[in-house]
């Protein structure tokens, strides 16, 4: 799980152009949208592409993304649940 989270952070930093940010600076439990990382609606769509590209997980309705992308913890848990299933 920790490996997955680290990899995920690296992928997010790259995909969302979070210049100057390192994985260590992203808190696993902190909200990614709004305050936290300050992501917006385009970032949310970009995260959907990230999941499809790197984990072959498809999210059709962007509304479903809200709960999944709440934090690194929720996102990693979602990926893991999909990979086991």
């Amino acid at each position: 799980m920790e490996d997955l989270k680290l990899k995920l952070k690296e992928q997010i930093i790259e995909a969302l152009n979070l210049e100057g940010m390192s994985p260590a600076e992203i808190d696993d439990a902190a909200p990614m949208f709004g305050e936290g990382l300050g992501l917006d609606s385009i970032d949310a769509l970009e995260l959907i592409v990230l999941l499809e590209k790197n984990y072959s997980i498809r999210i059709e309705d962007p509304k479903d993304g809200r709960a999944i992308f709440e934090s690194i913890n929720t996102m990693a848990a979602y990926i893991q649940s999909k990979q086991i299933a």
Binding site: N17, E46, V49
Partner: peptide, 9 residues
């Protein structure tokens, strides 16, 4: 085939 929303906008 992965068009990027952040590029397209």
């Amino acid at each position: 085939y992965f068009p990027s929303p952040a590029v397209f906008v």
